[in-house]
Design a protein around this nucleic acid. Structure first.
Lengths: 214, 214
DNA sequence: AAACTAAAACGCGTTGTTTCGTATTTTTAA
DNA sequence: TTAAAAATACGAAACAACGCGTTTTAGTTT
């Protein structure tokens, strides 16, 4: 499966990344402040309740977190990375799924989880990150690597397993299947986010999996 | 059906709009320069071949079109409106469809046309406008009013007609049908635009209409 | 006379970077 | 064992660069 973005480090195991951010690979000197890091992520989530990703500025985060801008720029390559980190640092956002009894159920559970994640304020933020990624290559890499690709890979895996097991139509291109399954969700997120509600969450996943069934 | 955005005027029939732009309602004095208008739209399209909507600035348009910024701001409320106008001013972008023999065919033709429009540079631009609309209410109004709503209304109309004629499943919520039909297209546009190619255009519309068929 | 035109300059706010003096931790060496 | 040195972190402040929408100016077209 996909690795987490390399600029996200465990507190004690810094790693290297060629494209995103150069992280010191020694342990000399003063270690970074966990307090500052947490304050930054917390401030980011707090500010995102009242403004868009685009409106959010590094300056505002620094001010709210009572932290220097330098500290932020030292640890994240850009705003997208900070916001992405803040998102996934929220408790409950990456709750594991129970074991499905077949691939149909697996798909349904994954779609249900996705819709839950996109319902509400986090959904707005993710839509804005997705948007920002359209024109900004760095943002694109971070958004894809941290969020989109892992998500789609997991679904593609279930699709392929389901095709092997003859639960799903084998003639269907897996990429097409992903678009059929996820496209409507993201489209609704971006065009009528208010309709991404409980009713949709209860009806859509079953409907969607029907579309790819054998 | 939906009206075009009111800031888009015929050369000789200026209209009023409360929200977007106040347009003079008399015919006294010097009329606006058609040359300037065309130069602005042409310069916008030209610049968009090499940069994103976000990178594009009103200043750059004015410079390229050899026009004062004042002239642009007098006739369009913001960048989104200029870009939207430039897009639809392109020849062939709003080619009328031949008369379909039933609603199934109507849907297929509409989807085919949409995919054609989104394939290539215009697709990138539309994705960027869609993105910009996520966080900017003015951009949202212009994008929806000029592009998205008319498109979706037309498809919804065909869906409902098809349901009356028992071509499509009557149990399906029309909004859901629209998401099923258009979602995958826009999702592919924003996640893997290179895959919005001829093969997709030939396979997807037929696949999609199958999903809502009775 | 009225409404337009291009061009230039304006103040404002935001951006990412750099510089500053200081704090904390590890390494070195007495 | 302990104390100085080296390394890296920290927050605050100042920086230049940029695009924004507005205003001013002087000239043009109907």
């Amino acid at each position: 499966m996909t690795q987490p973005a390399a600029y996200i480090n465990d507190e004690d195991t810094p790693k290297q990344d060629s494209t995103l951010k150069v992280v010191p690979n020694t342990k000399k000197g003063r270690p970074r402040s966990t307090k500052s890091k947490n304050a930054i992520l917390k401030a980011t989530n707090s500010l995102l309740l009242h403004m868009s990703v685009q409106e959010l500025s590094i300056e505002a985060i620094a001010k709210k977190a009572k932290v220097g801008k330098t500290t932020i720029y030292r640890w994240w390559p850009n705003k997208t990375a900070v916001v992405m980190d803040a998102l996934i640092s929220q408790p409950g956002i990456q709750s594991p799924l129970p074991t499905p009894k077949n691939n149909t159920e697996a798909i349904i559970m994954q779609l249900d989880k996705l819709i839950r994640m996109l319902d509400g304020n986090n959904g707005e933020t993710i839509a804005q990150l997705f948007s920002e990624a359209q024109a900004d290559e760095k943002a694109q890499k971070i958004f894809s690597g941290t969020f989109l690709t892992p998500l789609l890979d997991a679904i593609e895996f279930s699709v392929q397993e389901g095709q092997k097991a003859r639960e799903f139509r084998g003639s269907l291109d897996p990429k097409m299947a992903i678009d059929l399954l996820c496209g409507p969700i993201f489209f609704r997120l971006m065009s009528r986010p208010a309709d991404l509600n409980e009713e949709f969450r209860e009806t859509y996943p079953k409907e969607a999996v029907r579309l790819i069934s054998a």
